[in-house]
């Protein structure tokens, strides 16, 4: 499978990438690791006329501490995220989630910014960001705006990211020692979640239970009110209307959400 023809441009800085985006508009797509975009282009589900490669934009890489938050450059690859001492210490759920993405080769290429901007509701990192209550820094011609994870995802493969903006960095709370639980149900070892559940710090997020990674709010409230993991998890699927496909119908996904939430809460509570 061969992508449709396109022009390939290499951005040298974030400002340069924004200039190129402004010049080419909706015909252009930003290329990070390319592990969501290139498969779509090979299937001709996407056919941008211009690719703007961010691989030389060093200011979009790197992981640092900023007060009680970790700041993760959008071009940070999954393998780097999983191996980072800062992330493993301050946001171990995120390091674990990064290690669940695809397989080693995919983790060598895929980036956190690319995964979040792609916004697949079945993916690991969007669910992890929502569970952690993190945020994203979006850089555009007018400057930088910070959007909470809960407000970033708007639909299947859709976010609030504007056509003239780039996702520059990801912020997550740094909470060393805070317990967490992470569950992912798949049929194949390296697949997307049929359903996923992640719990930490009183928040519970679900993957593939709707068009965006969703919070299990009823279960969160029950857990906060002193319910056992099993009792709270019974409410995990409340208000969800997951899609149906060859892997699972709606009732099975809701069953999985309850089971995986219970396991995630049990793991979190040790």
């Amino acid at each position: 499978m061969i992508p449709a023809p396109f022009d390939y441009l290499t951005a040298t800085s974030a400002a340069h990438a924004l200039d190129l985006l402004g010049e080419h508009g909706e015909d252009a797509k930003l290329l990070a690791g390319g592990h969501s975009l290139l498969p779509m282009m090979k299937l001709r589900l996407a056919a941008p006329e211009v690719l703007i490669d961010l691989r030389r934009v060093t200011e979009l890489s790197g992981i640092s501490s900023d007060g009680d938050e970790l700041v993760i450059g959008a071009m940070t690859r999954h393998a780097e995220l999983a191996a980072s001492a800062l992330v493993r210490d301050g946001a171990p759920l995120l390091a674990h989630a990064a290690a669940q993405v695809g397989d080693p080769q995919i983790r060598h290429r895929g980036t956190i910014g690319g995964s979040l901007a792609h916004a697949d509701p079945a993916a690991d990192l969007p669910m992890a960001l929502v569970a952690l209550g993190g945020s994203v820094e979006l850089r555009g011609p007018a400057g930088i705006r910070t959007v909470a994870a809960d407000d970033f995802f708007t639909g299947y493969f859709e976010t609030v990211l504007g056509p003239d903006e780039l996702l520059a960095a990801v912020r997550v709370p740094s909470a060393p020692g805070q317990p967490w639980g992470y569950q992912k149900f798949t049929r194949r070892a390296n697949d997307w979640a049929i359903v996923g559940a992640a719990a930490t710090g009183g928040r519970i997020a679900l993957a593939n239970m709707g068009p965006v990674p969703v919070r299990a709010l009823a279960a969160e409230r029950a857990a906060a009110g002193g319910a056992s993991a099993a009792e709270a998890a019974q409410l995990a699927a409340e208000g969800t209307s997951p899609g149906e496909d060859i892997h699972a119908d709606r009732a099975f996904r809701q069953h999985l959400a309850r089971v995986l939430t219970r396991r995630a809460l049990e793991h979190e509570r040790g």
Binding site: G34, L38, R55, A79, Q105
Partner: peptide, 13 residues
């Protein structure tokens, strides 16, 4: 030095 799947990497990359 890192393993990648060359069906999902552009030569340009």
């Amino acid at each position: 030095g890192k393993s990648v799947k060359s069906c999902t990497v552009l030569t340009a990359q």
